[in-house]
Design a protein around this nucleic acid. Structure first.
Lengths: 233, 233
DNA sequence: TCCATAGTTTGATGATAATCAAAGTATGCC
DNA sequence: GGCATACTTTGATTATCATCAAACTATGGA
């Protein structure tokens, strides 16, 4: 086994332990969490959690920021999120696809690192494309989107900070393949702006300690009237 | 930890053990291998290899086909290959980027499950696109390619079985993001046909027990004269 | 300065997993 | 039928890893 494989084994075995996996998947919603919170989520003692987090940090799966006595842990970038999603698909388990069967909840909506993923995200993507608010162009990195003039005004009227997304030093908008839906949703800065707007307008809310997003009553109404997207129960 | 995470832990920990990882990465070149071969590659005894392979089979990472007394193991589809490549990237190791520094070897060429990946594959992709032998169209699954009429005759003249690729019950041609190059190469049935043709014409040969492909003297000459692709030493 | 809180380090304990040799099973060939 | 080969199963051994409580360190507030 060469040196490269040794590194892979360390990364895979770091993920392949129940407590550490719990913590990693808990961070998949893109939010930072303290070590004490992660200990509780993983159902281990703070000392156990501390050792595990040190291991994850050593393998560059998480980053930590200290603020006073608190230590805030986050996933170390979208590539980690990508592999975790891939492992979920490989395991045959859908990452948090089922939301509680209340009439307001969309069957599948979740935050994928910093943007929306799931059924709702795919439907929004399809709608924006159908309305020709996005144009696509192939690049060496996959398919990217640009916002058309009509799309710019429509999305801005929806409260989506298109200009702010454009000014960020990151990819503006790209097709992000949705592992659970097997179809694209919108990633990049625009994808993050869309999630921000949906949260601000309270069309969706975050589930506590979960990547799932819950579609609110208001959200359901707005999504139906604006986009023709029905939530199914 | 919910049931989904338990499944993920089993998959990740199955990968995260040196002997099993060796066997998985040995299979990443898309060829089937016997359990005895894999035992040798992983430097464990046949009995140890047998138990490990049983574990990998249990987690659906490999499939096995018995032919007489031989057991041939393969990766269980491109999705497994995809996650293994993703783990390699995450681990910071490049999958077999360096070939021995003989003057004939291209720096980066390897087989990725059933098609060619690496620098050469990316250059071929770029050339075929530049010659407009491929047209692209975005689908809900990413970017796909179609062969133009000019491309069909040119590729067929190159010995690439375009018609055979088209008749297969799988995706004809798609942009497959090359993890090491970060640019697309050609996947799908056409990608496999291209690798087949390159092997048949002896432009490339397989390295023994490796995913690396070696560009032959003939291959280097043909690639330069036909496509303007130089191999660098 | 003292106390509470957050988090880390240490040492002991128990569980789990990988390893192999030996024995066993199945297949193929003569 | 007998022998060789490929592979599996079993039991014993060893190493590794996760766990926690206790002690310790760092930070923040009164």
């Amino acid at each position: 086994m060469d040196a490269a494989d040794v590194a892979v084994v360390k990364v895979a075995s770091a993920i392949g332990e129940p407590a550490r996996a719990s913590m990693l998947y808990a961070l998949l919603d893109g939010r930072a969490r303290t070590s004490t919170e992660l200990a509780m989520l993983a159902e281990v003692s703070p000392s156990t959690a501390s050792v595990h987090l040190d291991r994850l940090k050593g393998e560059r799966l998480v980053t930590v920021v200290a603020q006073g006595k608190h230590r805030y842990y986050s996933l170390n970038g979208p590539r980690v999120a990508y592999v975790l999603e891939g492992l979920s698909v490989l395991a045959g388990a859908r990452p948090t696809e089922f939301t509680p069967s209340t009439p307001d909840a969309l069957v599948t909506a979740r935050s994928c690192y910093d943007h929306m993923a799931g059924h709702l995200a795919v439907r929004l993507h399809d709608h924006f494309r159908a309305m020709k608010w996005l144009s696509s162009h192939a690049t060496h990195r996959g398919m990217n989107y640009e916002v058309t003039p009509a799309g710019a005004s429509a999305l801005t009227r929806l409260g989506i900070d298109v200009a702010g997304a454009r000014s960020r030093r990151r990819q503006f908008a790209r097709a992000c393949l949705d592992w659970s839906e097997r179809r694209p949703h919108i990633g990049g800065a625009l994808g993050a702006a869309i999630l921000d707007a949906a949260l601000k307008k309270k069309w969706v809310t975050r589930e506590l300690d979960s990547r799932a997003l819950r579609v609110t009553v208001i959200g359901r109404s707005e999504l139906r009237s604006r986009f023709g997207i029905e939530s199914t129960a």
